[in-house]
């Protein structure tokens, strides 16, 4: 079950700054997929915080789960935009097909189904995210197909088709403002410019728009493995969705691709996790 040393490792990394409970729990959550009682007790012991506080925080945020999750995570957006476009009917359908309530996990630990409030892709609503893959403009009739696809593994399909290198043009999922910066070229292409913050640092961050290239430039040097928060430089909304990186379980940063679809990159510095869904292409 839980590996003590893994937890201690995470605690060691967060040692410097006090008041880092959130990031400790975040790391634990992404490592194990949930917060086990033992893990929380160990955190309490090592940080000298009371278990009551830790438990309070862990149960307060929806980002933390106290129960082991299923292999596949299905999130249905019930944010305002998706709600009016029929999100609840889709949630209902998934609930019925999997025979679990939102927040539940199937007894065979295959699927966890949850509802979320806005995934940051309102223009594509109603949105369903399965294992980090966005399915835009969902209908109830597609539900069965998606569940079947998820079982065979959406990631497996994705990775070999994404080997090509091509430039993408992206915009903010909230305000739809283009994130391309023609004044900042990387790989001879306009870079994608966002604002990042981590620890107490805040600054610009430009990444290559070549899909498959990992070149970046940043105002502040970013330590490896740091999980960054990215913000739209125009509307200042945090670019964050419900999805987790398939490789390191850090949150994924969604951006809208011009011409339809969503590209997601892992928020962890140095992790190469990324995904591209072009206009529901995975369904064709």
């Amino acid at each position: 079950m839980m590996d003590r040393s893994e937890v201690l490792d995470i605690l060691e990394r967060h040692k410097e700054a006090s008041g880092q409970l959130m990031s400790i729990l975040e790391s634990l959550q992404s490592k194990h997929g949930y917060l086990s009682q033992e893990a929380m007790e160990l955190v309490a012991q090592e940080t000298g915080r009371s278990l009551t506080d830790i438990y309070g925080v862990a149960t307060f945020y929806k980002a933390f789960s106290l129960e082991p999750r299923g292999k596949h995570l299905i999130s249905v957006c019930l944010g305002t935009a998706c709600h009016v476009r029929g999100g609840p009917a889709i949630a209902e359908e998934i609930s019925q097909q999997l025979n679990i309530e939102p927040g539940g996990t199937t007894p065979d630990r295959e699927f966890t189904f949850e509802t979320v409030n806005c995934l940051g892709a309102c223009a594509l609503g109603p949105v369903v995210v399965v294992d980090g893959h966005y399915f835009p403009k969902m209908t109830t009739s597609k539900v069965g197909e998606i569940i079947a696809k998820a079982k065979t593994g959406l990631d497996a399909v994705e990775i070999d088709t994404d080997k090509r290198v091509f430039p993408v043009e992206v915009s903010c999922a909230y305000c739809n403002h283009s994130l391309m910066d023609p004044h900042h070229m990387i790989d001879d292409q306009p870079g994608i410019r966002v604002t990042v913050s981590f620890e107490d640092k805040h600054g610009w961050f430009v990444l290559s728009s070549l899909y498959g290239s990992y070149k970046i430039e940043s105002m502040n040097p970013i330590p490896r493995d740091m999980i960054m928060h990215m913000f739209c430089p125009h509307c200042h909304a945090e670019l964050i969705g419900g999805a987790k990186c398939p490789e390191c379980r850090a949150p994924m940063v969604p951006m809208i691709v011009r011409g339809g679809g969503v590209v997601q990159i892992c928020a962890r510095r140095g992790c190469k996790g990324h995904m591209l869904d072009l206009g529901g292409g995975t369904l064709e």
């Binding site: 009551t52 438990y55 307060f60």
Partner: peptide, 8 residues
């Protein structure tokens, strides 16, 4: 600190 708020 034996008891505290939980959930939301």
């Amino acid at each position: 600190k034996a008891i505290g708020f939980r959930g939301r």
